[in-house]
Structure formats: C-alpha cells, structure tokens
Design a protein around this nucleic acid. Sequence first.
DNA 1: GCCATACTCAAGTACATGCTTAAGCAAGAG
DNA 2: CTCTTGCTTAAGCATGTACTTGAGTATGGC
Lengths: 120, 120
Amino acid sequence: MLKQEVPLDRVFHALGDPSRRLMVERLSRGPASVSELARPLAMTLAGVVQHLQVLEASGLVRSEKVGRVRTCRIDPAALTRAEQWITERRSTWERRLDRLGDFLAEPSETTDPNHSNSNS
Amino acid sequence: MLKQEVPLDRVFHALGDPSRRLMVERLSRGPASVSELARPLAMTLAGVVQHLQVLEASGLVRSEKVGRVRTCRIDPAALTRAEQWITERRSTWERRLDRLGDFLAEPSETTDPNHSNSNS
DNA sequence: GCCATACTCAAGTACATGCTTAAGCAAGAG
DNA sequence: CTCTTGCTTAAGCATGTACTTGAGTATGGC
C-alpha cells in the first residue's frame, strides 16, 4: 500500500485559493493538460505551474508527462480526507446539540459537578 | 438581510492552519473562552486572538463578550459550505468514472480499422 | 481601593505566497 | 531543417501571514 498521508494543512491550504479551486473543478470533470488548466486563468503559464505544484504537494492532483504534454488528474483520496475532517467536526457538534436537547427536555437535574443536587 | 456568504477562500484558508483547526476541534465539543482556546497552543494570547479573528472572518466561529470573558462557538454553516464544495467535486468525478465504465463495458466499434473519429 | 484576570490593540519582524519576466529546452508539425 | 507549442526553471518583488513584545483597558474577587 502506498501510504502518503499528506498533512491536512496542505490540503486545506491548497483549496484556499480560487485559482487552485478552479483547477480542481476543471479536473473533477476529467484530466487536462497544464495549458488547458491555464486557459481560464488570467495569469502566465509559469504562475499556473506553481499552483499546480501546490496542488501536487497537497496530494489533490497527480500528473505525468507524455511527450511534451503534462496531463493532470484529480486524486480524490486527499479530497475525501478533508471532507472527513469536516464531517467529523460537524457530527461532534451535532451530537452535542442532541445531548443538550435531551438535557433541556428533562425535568431539571444538573450535571454541574460544583452544584449540589438538592433533590432526593 | 442576513446574507453573509463569506467566500470559500476564507473558509479553506482558515482551516489550512493547524492551530486554527485545533481551535475548531475544541469548539465542536462546545463553546469556550479565548484563554481556554489558548491553553493547548504554544503561543501568546495575542497570537490566539489573531487566529480567532481569521476564524470569525471566515464565518466558522462567532463570539460574544460577556463581562471580561469572550465566549466563542462554532457556526456550522460555513463548515457545511466547505463540505458541500468538496462533495460536489467528488461526485462530479465519480459520475465521470461511471460514464467511463459504461463506455468501456459497451461492445466497441473503435477497434474497427475503418473507424473514423473526427476530433478537431 | 487593590490586584489578578481576561482580553485588546499597535507595532515590529521573519518568512511564506502569488505573482511576474526572461531564458531555456525538448517534442512535434510542416 | 525551422518554427511553434508546451512546458520548465530561476530570479525578483510586492503583499500577506504568523507570530512576537509591550502597552493599555475593563471586570470582578477580596
């Protein structure tokens, strides 16, 4: 198994730039060459290549060169890891709200350790 | 009107820093004061406050001050927007793979030597 | 009132980021 | 062969980021 495990830092950082997100959007519709990725971006090719390097370092994109053309494609694993991190935070938050809801629904009984329960 | 619509840029950028992700993780377990958020971070309070400002600007976190304590809590809407963006890219990519699978499963005429495929 | 707590703000600094230009090189069309 | 295409690399530069220190303010316990 090819375990890479690029830190989440790089993945989120890579997604934090609109040009790079556009590149990812394009690649999610299928592989593309570097100049194809560059076309919609108001930027020199050299600039695009630098964004591509960030995307590759994050694990979001892989590429290989055939002849003089470098073909890039998305690697969904990194995308999934980022998605999972978010999902986990959200579900932690939601579970907490559920427990809070239970608590509020109950006839008053406190979980505060500093508070002496006067009842019974 | 309460339309905020913070650009995704800020959300992903905010999540691209490990200290800020730690803060979000802590807040997903429930509200916290600034110094509570600061405790696990090897950094001055002032530094933490700056991270907090980034998180607030991204819409991921809201906070209000009562007395001398500022209490911070997560706002899951921004988290959801980021999650959605990722999910959309993944599903576009997956649909494409499905179509590609269908294409490859078909009895093909592309092996026919007379086959003419004009692609400009 | 006095003091510790809990921030808040401004300024400074080192390093990272997002571009650019300019030069170079290999692949492929004519 | 020449010329164009498709990158690739290095250098430079303006701006942004992630901190710091040092000062200040308001709150609340004693």
